[in-house]
Computed example of a mutant assay.
Amino acid sequence: MLVLTRKQGEKILIGDDIVITVLDVRGDSIRIGVDAPRGVRIQRDEVLRAVTEANIAASESGQGHDDAEARLKATLGLLPVPPTPAP
C-alpha cells in the first residue's frame, strides 16, 4: 500500500485518467473528489459490504425482498435497526 500525505487542493494521479483531489480537511476527516472516466466504478467500501451482507442474509433467511431492503437501509443508517426474527 502506498501511503501519501496531501494538503487541501493537492491531487493524486492514478494512471492517465483518474485524479483524486483533497477538497477539505476538518479535524480527523477529509473530503475527497474523484475524477474518473464514466466506465470506472467508484464505490464506498462500507456500502458495498452492507449490500453484500444484506444479500447473503436474505438468501439464507428465505425471507422476502422487503426484509433484506429494511436491513440494508438500517445498516446504512437510513432506518432504525429492525428486530432479528427468532429462529
Rank of each mutant, 00 (worst) to 15 (best):
T84H: 09
R31S: 15
D28L: 07
L4Q: 11
D67K: 04
D66C: 01
A68P: 01
E53M: 07
K7T: 06
D66W: 02
I32R: 09
R38A: 13
R44C: 07
I56P: 00
D35P: 01
R41G: 06
T21I: 09
R6A: 11
A54Q: 00
R6W: 01
V40F: 02
S59F: 04
L76S: 03
I20F: 01
L79V: 05
R26H: 12
V40W: 05
Q63T: 10
N55H: 14
G77H: 04
L76V: 05
G77M: 04
S29P: 01
L13N: 10
E69G: 08
R26V: 14
A54C: 08
E60L: 15
T52G: 11
D28S: 09
I56E: 09
G9S: 04
I12Y: 01
L72I: 03
R41M: 11
A68F: 03
T75W: 00
A70K: 01
P85L: 05
E10W: 06
R49Q: 08
D17W: 06
G15D: 09
L23V: 14
I30L: 14
I20H: 00
L4A: 12
E10M: 08
L72A: 01
R6H: 07
D17T: 11
A57M: 06
P82N: 07
K73D: 00
A68M: 09
N55V: 15
S29N: 13
G64W: 05
G62R: 06
R31V: 15
D24N: 15
Q63E: 13
T52Q: 14
G64Q: 04
D45I: 04
Q43W: 01
D66Y: 02
D66L: 09
P85D: 08
I32Y: 04
E60D: 14
R41A: 12
Q63S: 11
T75I: 00
A74I: 03
V47F: 04
P87M: 11
